[in-house]
């Protein structure tokens, strides 16, 4: 099994932390091998930010993603830049609040109002990344919900832990409800 996951959005949306949470959910809490990399130096707010996670149950030799199995796009820029680099049977998760122009006929697209969900949850867009992690977990099923929750616990600041856990769980639930055929057990 090899899975190539790409997370993309704007700097400041927490893409890198989300990638780290996913990488540790797979690598540390699920005993898979993992390689995580990111665009270097895109920390400035607003710039295109991208992080890749490669998961494999064997050794990883191919260090780069050519076409993703799962692609997350949290901004229109991210969609424009990366949506072509998706496998034919891949899944593209978009934040429908920011990604307005997309291929409506593309069956691979799973759309969620991620930043709106975050605002409803905590009156802030800060939790979009963890909602995305939740969605991605149940879409990909490469590692368990439990391992992703452990990874969140390890990687987010303690005083924001509760809200981050809620965000991930919201991601699980919404994805299963909206796309049961993809995300169901």
């Amino acid at each position: 099994m090899r899975a190539e996951i790409r997370l993309a959005g704007s700097g400041g949306q927490g893409i890198i932390l989300a990638a780290k949470v996913i990488a540790e959910a797979a690598g540390i809490f699920s005993e898979l091998n993992v390689v995580q990399s990111q665009i270097y130096g895109a920390a400035a707010r607003g710039e295109l930010s991208k992080a890749d996670v490669i998961i494999d149950d064997g050794d990883i030799y191919t260090l780069e993603i050519s076409t993703a199995d799962i692609l997350l796009c949290l901004s229109q820029d991210a969609y424009n830049r990366y949506s072509k680099e998706l496998k034919e049977d891949g899944k593209l998760i978009i934040d429908s609040f920011y990604v307005k122009n997309y291929d409506q006929l593309d069956k691979r697209i799973l759309s969620f109002p991620i930043s709106e969900m975050s605002k409803e949850l905590a009156d802030s867009e800060l939790f979009s990344n963890m909602i995305s992690v939740g969605i991605l977990t149940v879409v990909g099923k490469y590692f368990s919900e439990e391992s992703v929750l452990k990874s969140v616990e390890k990687n987010v600041p303690k005083n924001f832990l509760d809200m981050n856990i809620k965000a991930v769980k919201l991601g699980f639930e919404r994805a299963k409800r909206k796309y049961p055929e993809v995300c169901g057990n």
């Binding site: 690598g27 091998n33 993992v34 995580q36 270097y40 990883i60 260090l63």
Partner: peptide, 10 residues
């Protein structure tokens, strides 16, 4: 090299 330096692995 830049790849080994920046990628995260177990």
């Amino acid at each position: 090299d830049e790849i080994i330096a920046h990628m995260r692995e177990k």
